[in-house]
C-alpha cells in the first residue's frame, strides 16, 4: 500500500466500505483515474497470442487465430514453438507512458502497480518455471534492473534466469522482417529443462518474435512446452 498514486502522485484515498472489515484488502498503487486508463485484454482474443480480435479487420482473422500467428504456425521452423501467450493489458497510450517511466526512466516501484493482476494471471496458468526475458549485460547495467524480472519479483514469484542475451541491439528500432530473420539472440544457461513447462515473462508482446526466439531455444534444450505472459499486448 502506498499513500500516493505511483503514476500521477496524487494522494490515494482508500475506499471505505464494509468489505474492509470482512475481506483481505488488496493494496492499491494507482489512483482510480489512472487505473481507469488501463484496459484489460478482454473479449475474444487470438488463441495463440491473446490479441483482441474485435478491432482487427475480419480478413486477418482465421477461425480463432490472428493472421500473424497463422503465418508463424505455417512456418515449420517456428511451428508450435510458443504454445500460448497471455497478456494482461492493451498497450494503449497511457500504458505506453507508464511502461516507459518504468523501464526507460528506471522507476522500479511502478512494477507494484501491476503486481496484483500479474499474480492473478500467473495463478491461472500451468507452468513449472518462470523465466524472464533477459537484457544484455550493458543494458542491464544502464537500467540497473531487468524490467521483466521486476514484474515477477514484485508479484511475489521467483524468477529463474535460464537465458542470456547474445545481441544487444534495440528491438524497437527494427522492422518485423528484421526481428524475425536475425540469428539466435539468446543463449540457454539453464540445465535440466526436460519435461519442464516454462512460462516466459516479458513486458510487451509486439510481433512475438522475441518470445518465439526464446521459446524455440528452450524447446530445443528439452523443455516440454513454452508459453508466455506479457504485461501488454501491442
Amino acid at each position: 500500500m502506498s499513500d500516493y498514486c505511483l503514476s500521477c502522485h496524487s494522494g490515494l484515498i482508500p475506499e471505505v466500505s464494509w468489505s474492509i472489515f470482512f475481506t483481505k484488502t488488496v493494496p492499491t498503487y494507482l489512483c482510480s483515474s489512472c487505473e481507469n486508463q488501463l484496459t484489460l485484454v478482454g473479449g475474444p482474443t487470438c488463441k495463440i497470442c491473446d490479441r483482441p480480435l474485435e478491432k482487427l479487420d475480419p480478413q486477418y482473422v482465421i477461425g480463432a487465430t490472428c493472421y500473424d500467428c497463422v503465418r508463424w504456425e505455417e512456418d515449420p521452423e517456428w511451428q508450435s514453438a510458443l504454445l500460448k501467450n497471455h497478456s494482461i493489458y492493451v498497450y494503449n497510450d497511457f500504458l505506453k507512458e507508464v511502461i516507459s517511466q518504468y523501464k526507460f526512466r528506471g522507476d522500479y516501484i511502478i512494477a507494484k502497480a501491476f503486481s496484483e493482476n500479474i499474480r492473478k494471471k500467473i495463478k491461472t496458468i500451468d507452468y513449472d518455471i518462470l523465466v524472464p526475458i533477459p537484457l544484455s549485460k550493458e543494458r542491464q547495467y544502464e537500467r540497473g534492473f531487468n524490467q521483466s524480472e521486476g514484474l515477477i519479483v514484485e508479484a511475489g514469484f521467483q524468477p529463474t534466469n535460464f537465458l542470456q542475451r547474445i545481441h544487444s541491439e534495440k528491438q524497437s528500432k527494427k522492422s518485423r522482417h528484421d526481428r524475425i530473420h536475425v540469428q539466435q539472440v539468446f543463449r540457454c544457461i539453464g540445465s535440466d529443462l526436460s519435461d519442464k513447462r516454462i512460462l516466459l515473462i516479458d513486458d510487451i508482446y509486439t510481433t512475438g518474435s522475441t518470445l518465439r526466439h526464446a521459446a524455440k531455444l528452450l524447446k530445443e534444450e528439452g523443455a516440454q512446452s513454452v508459453s508466455s505472459l506479457t504485461l501488454a499486448r501491442g
Partner: peptide
C-alpha cells in the same frame, strides 16, 4: 520519503534507494 523508492540494483547489488522526484533528469540512487 514518499518520493523515494528502492530497487534491486544491478550496479551495486543492494536494495538501492532512488529519488523519484527528479527522476526525469536521469535516476539518482
Amino acid at each position: 520519503q514518499n518520493w523515494f523508492a528502492a530497487y534491486p540494483c544491478s550496479r551495486c547489488g543492494t536494495s538501492c534507494t532512488y529519488c523519484r522526484r527528479c527522476l526525469m533528469m536521469g535516476r539518482v540512487s
